[in-house]
Design a protein around this nucleic acid. Structure first.
Length: 424
RNA sequence: GGAGAAGUGGCCGAGAGGCUGAAGGCGCUCGCCUGCUAAGCGAGUGUAGGAGUGAAUGCUCCUAUCGAGGGUUCGAAUCCCUCCUUCUCCGCCA
């Protein structure tokens, strides 16, 4: 959410920063300004009347104590009370409307995010060299299917399409990756957290997934809860309504959770294997930091993501996402895309976003120093390891001609002793 | 799931329709004082919104805020309703 005061005081700047996302992003600005004006007018009116009522009520109290007659004043205040109620009712409507509009407005874009849509995202650089195969490489499902490490058919029978059973060595691989990631992140000051994956609407609104992305979310109607699509949601909400101690910043967490996505609108896209499924597990980092440090923190997160892929020996490219392709809460986003030999292209495996104060304003996460007033923090999130996609990349890049999969050296300590290949 | 109890400032804790933004204590900040420290004395110390004013750190005033939201009343921390959270007991369960 943007600060209404910023929109009020610097409408041209706001309009310019938002229009880089496309025309839809600025559509509501005039309405917003008009509603804000109405709201403030009503506020002045109602506050004047409340002030009057407060002072006269005080006089009534004094009169009663002195055993004097106050019936005229009481009568007058009864009328004022009715007027207050009338204005309050209209004010409430205007505020609700203002809030609803404001919730739809995406974050301002960072000037270093490229202008334009998806096709304008900028490949910043590449790392590593895609492997030259002396045989025809198989895709992840051709590798893991015959070895009975991925079972799509039974996943579909149990839960429907885009659900899978992962079995055997793939399960060991997943937990090895989790251990590897958690230990690396812990050593960099990120506190490991296992989060609730069912969250209230507040958490979804607070992180900016609601009201715009409701169709992507599994909702448990009976309890008014939502299954999270990423542990970003419960991690961001971890300090909702809190004022953190400035000296503790940055506050960094690494979460591990299952993630649930309806993938509405993705019909027919990435239908093979586990590249795009309704449920997957992910190790996610999250940071609350001082406003003037978030760019630095964003680069730090990207460097961690790169370190993970480099440690795993997976060739990748880093992409600076264009303004028009950013999610609503993000001011700037980097994706890392790993090389998939059978698709002969780079595919997204991690993503990290600087949400500036957009989520913090909604969630009311602030910090305060020795002196001065509380201020909103900046929030950042980034994928450490998206387990499904990272395992796909490992399988495809590390495959042997016989269909087994070699193990990246850094994972060996986290796999069962003596396991040299997966799926053998 | 059933039955009870409770939620007050950074913390503890009083208050039970008006004189309460909230006693008292602790903590914290500033000042005074005392060889140092401790103690003592004095003052200050929540958040948000709005109006006015200034070049500006700001200042003045108003409004709201005693878990959240409604209601009763001229007036609600205090009375009523709904919800949330915590605790105790019973049931169930990994």
């Amino acid at each position: 959410m943007l600060d209404i005061k910023l929109i009020r005081n610097e409408p041209d700047m706001v309009r310019a920063a938002l229009s880089r996302r496309g025309p839809h992003a600025v559509a509501a600005l005039d309405t917003l300004l008009e509603l804000d004006k109405q709201r403030r007018e009503m506020l002045v009116a109602v506050e004047e009347k409340r002030s009057l009522r407060n002072s006269v009520s005080e006089e009534i109290a004094v009169a009663k104590r002195n055993k004097e007659d106050a019936s005229a004043k009481i009568e007058a205040m009864r009328a004022v009370g009715d007027e207050i109620k009338a204005i309050e009712a209209r004010l409430k409507d205007v505020e609700a409307e203002l809030e609803a509009e404001l919730l739809q407005v995406p974050n301002l874009t960072d000037e270093s995010a490229p202008t334009g849509g998806e096709e304008d995202s900028e490949v910043m650089y590449k790392w590593g060299t895609p492997r030259q195969f002396s045989f025809m490489p198989k895709d992840h499902l051709d590798l893991a299917g015959p070895a009975d490490m991925i079972d799509m058919e039974r996943g579909a029978r149990t839960s429907g399409s885009r659900f899978a059973y992962l079995k055997g060595d793939l399960v060991f691989l997943q937990f090895a990756l989790v251990q590897f990631a958690l230990q690396k992140l812990a050593s960099k000051g990120f506190r490991p957290v296992i989060v609730p994956v069912l969250v209230r609407d507040e958490a979804m609104f607070g992180t900016g997934f609601f009201p715009t992305d409701t169709q992507q979310v599994y909702r448990v109607e009976a309890d008014d809860l939502n299954l999270v699509g990423t542990s970003e949601v419960p991690l961001a909400a971890l300090h909702m309504d809190e004022i953190l101690d400035e000296s503790d910043l940055p506050v960094r967490y690494v979460g591990y959770s299952s993630c649930f996505r309806r993938e509405a609108g993705a019909a027919g896209k990435d239908t093979r294997g586990i590249f795009r499924v309704h449920q997957f597990d992910k190790v996610e980092m999250f940071s609350f930091c001082a406003p003037d440090k978030s760019r630095e923190e964003h680069d730090f997160m990207r460097s961690i993501e790169e370190e993970v892929l480099q440690d795993l020996g997976l060739p990748y490219q880093a992409v600076n996402i264009a303004a028009g392709d950013l999610g609503a809460p993000a001011a700037k986003k980097y994706d890392l895309e790993a090389w998939l030999p059978t698709q002969e292209r780079y595919r997204e495996v991690t993503s990290c976003s600087n949400c500036t104060d957009y989520q913090a304003r909604r969630l009311k996460v602030r910090a305060k120093g020795e002196k001065g007033s509380p201020y909103l923090l900046h929030t950042l999130n980034g994928t450490v390891v998206a387990l499904g996609r990272t395992m796909i990349a490992i399988m495809e890049n590390y495959q042997n001609e016989d269909g087994t999969i070699a193990v990246p050296a850094v994972l060996k300590p986290f796999l069962p002793a003596g396991k040299e290949v997966l799926g053998g």
